[in-house]
């Protein structure tokens, strides 16, 4: 055995070579969501939230996930360099074959998050269940984490905000990013993007507990090839992609 801290990485590399784009078998449930937990029970390390995105089902021109995220979290939806984007749709093209893929890019909720490593105040943090968050009460807005993130997943709030969603406080001077809709997950709902993708009939996003072998996501990941974006960095991401 090597001393790698990611025992499952070898498997990922192997399976990554398998022909991509396999469709999820009809028998696999999309709505399998983890067992509920009482409000006084904290996030547990027996759970690790993750997401599997099937790029072959992610439709051209569709922005259901982005709109739902903006709505749930109170983002303006603008895409300028100073606007917050918690999920973006990237279009990648293979130069040789010309094949194109849509790649919804969001915080990858790494098991070894570089943003947490570099944060000078402890504001960037990983919850016991793997959700990577900014504790904005102690964020000083230095933006080291934004530079450390290989996925450009974080944004900085440059202007004062008003009329925030009471469930999603946001404000000027802090860094923020996808929270997997922690306010929804904690009440046993799916992240807004996943719900919207399913409602639109694409079912390109699957959310669930990677540690629970009975969960739909764990089953799908066992059955089909999936990869981490920039898997070479060894971050052990919670968001995995199929079909790229």
């Amino acid at each position: 055995m090597t001393t790698s801290h990611k025992p499952d990485r070898r498997d990922f590399l192997k399976t990554g070579a398998v022909v991509a784009g396999a469709a999820i078998a009809p028998g696999i449930l999309f709505y399998g969501i983890a067992q509920g937990r009482a409000p006084e029970e904290g996030a547990s390390s027996l759970v690790r939230w993750g997401m599997l995105i099937d790029t072959s089902k992610c439709a051209n021109g569709c922005s259901a996930c982005v709109n739902a995220c903006n709505h749930e979290n109170g983002l303006s939806g603008k895409t300028g360099p100073q606007d917050s984007q918690w999920i973006r749709k990237l279009n990648i093209k293979h130069l040789q074959t010309g094949i194109e893929h849509n790649l919804p890019m969001l915080c990858q909720h790494c098991a070894n998050p570089p943003c947490v490593d570099v944060c000078p105040t402890g504001a960037s943090m990983k919850r016991a269940d793997g959700i990577v968050l900014v504790d904005r009460h102690i964020c000083i807005g230095c933006r080291y984490c934004m530079m450390a993130c290989p996925y450009k997943a974080r944004s900085f709030v440059h202007e004062p905000l008003s009329d925030q969603n009471p469930d999603v406080p946001r404000g000027k001077g802090c860094v923020e990013a996808c929270t997997f809709c922690v306010q929804r997950v904690d009440r046993d709902e799916q992240p807004a993007c996943v719900e919207a993708c399913n409602a639109d009939g694409h079912q390109a996003m699957l959310f669930g507990d990677l540690r629970n072998p009975e969960s739909a996501i764990a089953k799908a990941m066992k059955a089909y090839a999936s990869v981490e974006v920039r898997g070479d960095l060894g971050l052990n991401t919670g968001v995995r992609y199929q079909g790229i």
């Binding site: 999309f30 709505y31 922005s63 259901a64 709109n67 739902a68 903006n70 709505h71 749930e72 799916q190 807004a192 719900e195 919207a196 399913n198 409602a199 639109d200 009939g201 079912q203």
Partner: peptide
């Protein structure tokens, strides 16, 4: 979200 189904109907047309 003018272009999409309202979020609340999630799962309705699954």
């Amino acid at each position: 979200s003018p272009t999409m189904n309202p979020v609340q109907t999630g799962g309705a047309n699954q």
